[in-house]
Amino acid sequence: MADAILTEKLTKRYGRARGISEVSLQVQQGDVFGFIGPNGAGKSTLIRTLLGLIRASAGSASVLGMSIRTRRRDLLKRVGYMPSEAAYYPRMRVKDVFRMSARLRRKDCERESWVLCDRFELDPNRQVSDLSFGNKKKVAIINALQHRPELLILDEPTSGLDPLIQRVFWDVMRERNREGATIFLSSHVLSEVQHHCRHAAIIREGRLLVSDTVENLGRNAARRVTLRGLSQLPEAARRLPGVIEVHEHDNEVTLLYNGDMHPLVDQLNSLQYSDLLIAEPELEEIFMHFYEKGAKA
């Protein structure tokens, strides 16, 4: 089975400005893949390159086994895309957006759009220009879903949606994924990637830092160590190789540790503390670790 997305050293430069640099990424079919990075990291650039809105400066990429250079039209028939900030033509009603999209795809999917409008509580008769940001987001979601694509590429899909609609969104994503659709979404909301995605990649300043299962990212050698009843970490412990960051406040010391556990435990044995907690870090901490240090996993 071909990969849903496969890029090899994909690079996009805007003159001297950075876009993305040598991004090699693999997304398997049927996966739910989170693409994480802060604003300006290159998430949208990668997505727009995959869709043929911008042309790669170097490297290659294929979507559903089809080259983005030579088979753009064929692959777009099987892809649903949701931009982070959708804009529509003036004087259009919501249903006109879906109708035009269906005609451009030569696919009768009006009934599906009605069902989705119902689920997302969106009135199809409203003028698009009158819609709030959140409701425009719903239009974009339905537009990406209505033709039941094999691959969904969603650029920050939940930002601007209220929690109830976010729940509906993830319910629909789960259903589509169970039916075989691959979901590739960019986000800077790490908790949703952690809860809903099976794989994730982190991009920083246009370069891919790591790509792995969400479980493995969390299971990374790094551990969050919390010492209660201790106000300050001694210098000897602080200097251990593998200590990434230390926070001390309210008679509690928290450190992120990525190294051999034995020297750390030896150091901790000599300390007076009331409670010790060693846990896998949250994805957010992993992200911050990669992001702040720029280290490669």
Partner: peptide, 14 residues
Amino acid sequence: GRHTAEYLFPHPVS
């Protein structure tokens, strides 16, 4: 200019 390219061009049209 009106950002509608991101609606139009991800459709299968050359």
